[in-house]
């Protein structure tokens, strides 16, 4: 009996002993991922090089000709959103790191739980020319016929920021709270004020977390279809709209995929900095 138990023990031991069992456990997940994600992903890259003119960069050429404005627009909107989200996240996280405010702590998380689609629809209602914001402002200031922010790039950015800042704040606040009090107090003790301490001490220590938050914000903004659909202007548009347009109206998989690969490259370009930093950390 004892030797049977020993055999069982060694067979299923977790200290790197028998990896086979572990691989078996993870296999279903890997299969699903491979079939339903990796395969379409590769297909998208491959298809981007295939057009009715043969294999090559024709799709990319066409994509650039048609959509270079939208590419720049997409990057611009995403970067502006990223900067504003970063600012808000650092301010809110900085405040909550030092002071208790249960109201803020609760309410800043709200947009996180609102689906993108609902956020888009609500912003549409809120920022429309005769929407709630303008109605309120009209009552307060007496100015009627204020331009609506909906369907402008400002409305788009505001909607993105509204939806994205909670996650970034949550992550960055988590990072801030993991910095021990004594590190901050040491800075204050030597003459730094709270703002300086946040910028020079807390943020650098939290760099990995901040980078993760920024990458997540960037990726979900640049790849979002619903919000630009519901509240973005009709020209220029974000890349996802171009992609779906290309498919639904032209059946043009080649150019659509070329646009897709372009968005991959933009994301990889940004994450490169993050990945390089994380890999450096692994070595030390």
């Amino acid at each position: 009996m004892r030797c049977f138990l020993e055999k069982m023990r060694s067979k299923f031991s977790t200290d790197g002993g028998n990896q086979l069992y572990g691989i078996l456990l993870i296999l279903p997940a890997l299969l699903v991922l491979a079939l339903l994600y990796i395969y379409p992903l590769f297909s998208s890259i491959v298809k981007s090089f295939v057009s009715d003119q043969g294999i090559g960069l024709h799709n990319y050429q066409k994509a650039f000709d048609l959509y270079w404005v939208d590419v720049l627009y997409t990057i611009g909107i995403t970067v502006i959103t990223l900067l504003i989200v970063f600012m808000i996240a650092v301010i809110v996280a900085g405040y909550l790191r030092f002071k208790r405010w249960p109201f803020l702590n609760f309410i800043y998380r709200l947009p996180l739980f609102i689906p993108f689609l609902i956020a888009g629809h609500s912003m549409r209602v809120f920022l429309a020319p005769h929407g709630i914001l303008n109605t309120l402002l009209a009552q307060i200031t007496g100015i009627s016929e204020l331009p609506g922010l909906a369907f402008t790039w400002i409305g788009l950015v505001l909607s993105f920021v509204w939806k994205q800042f909670p996650l970034a704040t949550l992550l960055i606040l988590g990072g801030f709270q993991s910095v021990e009090d004594s590190y901050i107090e040491a800075a204050l003790n030597l003459g730094s004020n709270k703002l300086r301490a946040i910028w020079e001490i807390i943020l650098p220590i939290c760099r990995p977390t901040v980078l993760v938050a920024m990458v997540l914000t960037f990726v979900s903004t640049i790849g979002c279809l619903t919000i630009p659909l519901l509240i973005g202007p009709s020209k220029p548009v974000m890349l996802p709209i171009d992609m779906s347009f290309r498919i639904n109206y032209f059946g043009d998989w080649g150019v659509a995929n070329a646009l897709g690969v372009i968005s991959y490259l933009i994301v990889v370009g940004l994450s490169f900095y993050y990945l390089r930093y994380m890999l450096k950390k692994e070595e030390t």
Partner: peptide, 19 residues
């Protein structure tokens, strides 16, 4: 405020900034 006091403190865990 602590940053204006001109007192210098040495902490139990040293609090040396790792970055």
């Amino acid at each position: 405020r602590p940053d204006l006091r001109n007192t210098a403190m040495v902490f139990q865990n040293y609090a040396l900034w790792p970055h």
